[in-house]
Computed example of a mutant assay.
Amino acid sequence: MDAVDLPVQPPVEPMLAKAVATVPAEPGTWSYEPKWDGFRAVVFRDGDEVMVQSRSGKDLGRYFPELLVSLRDELAPRCVVDGEVVVPREVDGRTRLDWESLSQRIHPAESRVRKLSEETPAHFIGFDVLAEGDRALLAEPFRARREALSDVVHPKAFCHVTRTTEDAEQGTLWLTTFEGAGLDGVIAKRLDGKYLPGKRDMVKVKHARDADCVVMGYRIHKSGEGLGSVLLGLYRDDGELQMVGGAASFTAKDRIKLLAELEPLREGDRVNDGEPSRWNSAADKRWIPVRPERVCEVAYDQMEGRGNDQRFRHAVKFVRWRPDREASSCAFDQLDVPLKYDLSDVLEGQ
Rank of each mutant, 00 (worst) to 15 (best):
V113H: 09
L137T: 04
G126H: 00
H123G: 01
E119K: 14
F124H: 02
D134H: 09
L130I: 10
E132H: 14
V113W: 09
E140P: 07
T120S: 12
V129G: 04
I125F: 09
P141T: 13
A122R: 02
A136Y: 02
G126T: 00
G126C: 09
D128E: 14
E110C: 10
E110F: 11
G126M: 08
A122Y: 01
F124V: 05
S117A: 15
A122E: 03
V129D: 00
I125Y: 02
P141G: 09
S117G: 10
V113N: 08
L137Q: 02
I125R: 00
I125E: 01
V113Q: 12
E132P: 00
G133R: 06
S117Y: 04
A122K: 02
D134Y: 05
E119V: 14
D134A: 15
K115A: 15
I125P: 05
T120M: 12
E132Q: 13
A122H: 01
A139Y: 04
V113S: 07
E132S: 10
H123N: 09
L138V: 08
F142I: 11
A131P: 01
D128F: 13
E140L: 14
I125K: 03
F127K: 05
S111M: 11
V113P: 01
P121W: 05
F142P: 03
H123M: 13
R112Q: 14
R112Y: 10
L138G: 06
I125W: 01
L138P: 05
L130E: 05
E119C: 06
A136W: 03
D128Q: 13
S111G: 13
S111Y: 11
T120Y: 10
E110G: 13
F142V: 08
L138K: 06
R143L: 01
E119I: 14
A139F: 03
H123Y: 07
T120P: 05
F127R: 00
D128P: 00
R112K: 15
S111H: 15
P121R: 03
D128W: 12
L116F: 09
R112S: 14
A131E: 04
E118L: 10
F124I: 02
I125S: 04
A139P: 00
S111N: 15
E110M: 12
E110P: 10
A131W: 07
R135G: 04
E110D: 15
P121L: 06
R135L: 12
A131L: 04
D134N: 11
F127M: 06
T120F: 12
L138N: 06
D128K: 12
E119G: 06
I125T: 01
A136D: 04
T120E: 08
V129E: 04
L116R: 07
G126E: 02
P121S: 07
L116M: 15
E132N: 10
D128N: 14
L138S: 04
V129M: 08
V129K: 01
E119Q: 14
K115E: 13
A136M: 09
L116S: 06
L116C: 08
D128C: 11
F142D: 03
E132F: 10
G126Q: 01
R114L: 09
L116D: 01
L130S: 06
F127T: 08
R114G: 02
A131N: 05
A131I: 01
L137S: 03
L138C: 09
L130M: 14
